[in-house]
Design a protein around this nucleic acid. Structure first.
Lengths: 149, 149
DNA sequence: GCCATATAGTTTATATATAAACAATACCAT
DNA sequence: ATGGTATTGTTTATATATAAACTATATGGC
């Protein structure tokens, strides 16, 4: 007997299969991305911080946390470690002494200038199994799953 | 100028967009799954351990780690916490004193019998925005990205 | 000016995750 | 049998992540 005693419909099975495949694929791709970044001594979250700062430098930790969709508490440690490595720095703001603005350093920029194109290339390689139309299709299907209503 | 100085092709952009959408969708769905389980005081990894034990009870920690695709070191803490809560127990094996077999308790079974159907239902709801053919299509596209060669 | 309230960043407790070193045990070849 | 090697589970160091408590500031109403 099924261990939950619940009769699984066809639709339910399809949904579950799809979700399980999504987990597998996501983990698989995420692992690849991580191992590439590791050669620069970077983690995925650290890379994301640097990438965000490249677009929006000198943002407050609060803003940065919102952009990255992580808690501000999490960001503290992230910025700490990036600071230790000399890739970003905290800057005090005169007008509001509670605020820190985070700035990417020259070293951080150099690192990102190497790592970013590599990442883009890696993603392209990862996705190379799909044709252009399939990429559009996949993106569309994924987007449909995020309900904004 | 583009901050990496690399001319991005059309294909590259499509790949990147697709990957970013995948991250967004995955995080979104994972958050939903997590918040549902939280009502049973369960985390996603803990639920996965219990679910696996429901199929393959009394497996060694080694086997369990392989099935869940996590390191054995990670599993130690996971089993510790599940044991504290009384949902699983470690059993020593006579023939090989290095080995622990992990068994789901009655309490663990009861919990899973409540939580598992809920999870299946939640996944179905999460996926309800897609038609049957779309689910097949999405699963197929995702599978294509996992290269086994 | 002063107090209530809000906000920014930090800290703490907890949970996950890996890699790598470690201990105990098993196994195998000679 | 014994000594080298494998394997199992544990521990340690490090990194991520959240929620919630806490600190220091700012701000608005009176």
């Amino acid at each position: 007997m099924d261990h939950n005693g619940c009769p699984e419909g066809e639709k339910s099975k399809k949904s579950l299969d799809c979700w399980l495949q999504m987990i597998r694929t996501y983990d698989y791709l995420q692992t690849q991305v991580a191992s590439l970044l590791q050669r620069h001594n970077l983690t995925v979250p650290q890379f994301e911080v640097l990438s965000t700062l490249a677009i929006a430098d000198c943002t407050t930790q609060q803003e940065l946390a919102q952009r990255l969709q992580v808690t501000k508490g999490n960001l503290v440690g992230l910025i700490d470690r990036l600071t230790e490595r000399g890739w970003v720095e905290r800057m005090q703001v005169q007008s509001d002494r509670r605020v820190n603005r985070v700035r990417i350093t020259e070293g951080g920029k150099e690192l990102l200038d190497k790592a970013f194109p590599e990442q883009v290339g890696a993603v392209e390689t990862m996705m190379s199994g799909l044709a252009d139309t399939e990429l559009d299709s996949l993106r569309g299907l994924l987007q449909k799953l995020v309900k904004t209503d």
